[in-house]
Design a protein around this nucleic acid. Structure first.
Lengths: 198, 198
DNA sequence: CATGAATCGGTACAAATGTACTGTATCACG
DNA sequence: CGTGATACAGTACATTTGTACCGATTCATG
């Protein structure tokens, strides 16, 4: 899709540029501020370039959510693999991962949270929201035995992330990680080999 | 403000009618859908009546958040009083309260969650968001000794509520309450008098 | 009952937005 | 080197939205 056909590669490049700009708009000014013109201005291109790739505003919104979700999803894939290998380290891995999301992936994370809210009145978004819940639960799975508990903790972690993003205090990142680590540990079900106990 | 002056009473009545309609619009169609005309249509009144009480759209948005927050805040006041008297029952009280919010106060609760997201890029909303976090932490206070832990659990509960509203499954209410009760119990710090242990 | 403020419906207009249309440049391919 | 599809800039127009304005109605008060 890129090497064989240069035209498609160019188009995809512009698309990602536009979607990155769209994610930035949503994260910095809210879901309501995402317009063709706002995305065009953020990417430094013409409005027609946006309407060409995303003819209707619904297309832009949907692609923007998919894009933000894809970025986060890739990060999930790596950390899930690491967690499945060492179940005892799941709390620490999860805590660092969440801190990473809020710090280095703040824009995409914020956009995903906007998507979760939007899913409340837009059923078409629910499959993607459920996908993220399942991925987060999958990350916790090796440490938390119960699937039900894992989903609860996944939702709880989302709430902790939300509260930090809502306050937007840049200095709360370390406290965020500790809070997540502690939360996960309180749901431990599989016996750990080492550890002196908290 | 109501009995002494009939005109003000009438105005306040219309205001609450409009704000209830505004909250409904936000809960059912999202924050972006809140316009003067949408609120007017929802309340069955003219657009001028909305612009009279809320001249700019910013006034309407701000008052809508305040209104939804006020409704939830009143419910908080009662439950906090009940919880302070019986610390051992805090998990059950909190669980039932959360279930009540999602069931009977779904519209206001959804609007408040929209406000939390909006606070990420609108600092003027953060005091109200912090107020709710503090109230929820205050509710948990008698049961959870650490103020830091109480705030974490408060954020976690918000995440659990968010996940249920996002999925919008009406049959998950009982599971919701159990999940909240279990979560709070895992953060117990004060010794309970009775109880056989879970 | 007269009066003035509060309230509200109807209308109008400027700005923002969604979206279509036209022309042009780029690039793969024959 | 022509050719056609892709990609994009500029423009235009209809719709939506924010907001102001005017007139009618309600209601407390003297």
């Amino acid at each position: 899709m890129a090497n064989a056909d240069g035209r498609l590669a160019r188009g995809e490049l512009r698309k990602t540029l536009l979607l990155d700009a769209a994610v930035t708009v949503v994260a910095e000014h809210g879901y309501a501020a995402l317009t063709h013109r706002a995305a065009a201005a953020g990417a430094g291109v013409s409005v027609a370039s946006v309407t060409y790739h995303f003819p209707s505003i619904g297309d832009l919104r949907e692609a923007m959510f998919q894009h933000a979700g894809s970025r986060i999803g890739l990060a999930f894939r790596d950390v899930i693999q690491a967690a499945s290998a060492r179940a005892d380290d799941v709390p620490a891995i999860t805590g660092s991962f969440v801190a990473h999301l809020v710090a280095e992936r703040r824009l995409e994370t914020t956009a995903v949270l906007e998507m979760v809210i939007a899913a409340g009145h837009d059923p078409s978004l629910r499959p993607l929201v459920r996908f993220f819940n399942d991925r987060l639960a999958e990350l916790l799975g090796p440490y938390i035995g119960s699937q039900s508990d894992a989903l609860t903790v996944a939702a709880a972690i989302q709430g902790i992330i939300l509260s930090r993003i809502a306050q937007s205090d840049p200095d709360v990142a370390p406290g965020l990680r500790d809070a997540v680590v502690d939360l996960v540990q309180r749901y431990r079900s599989t016996p750990t080999t080492g550890g002196v106990g908290a």
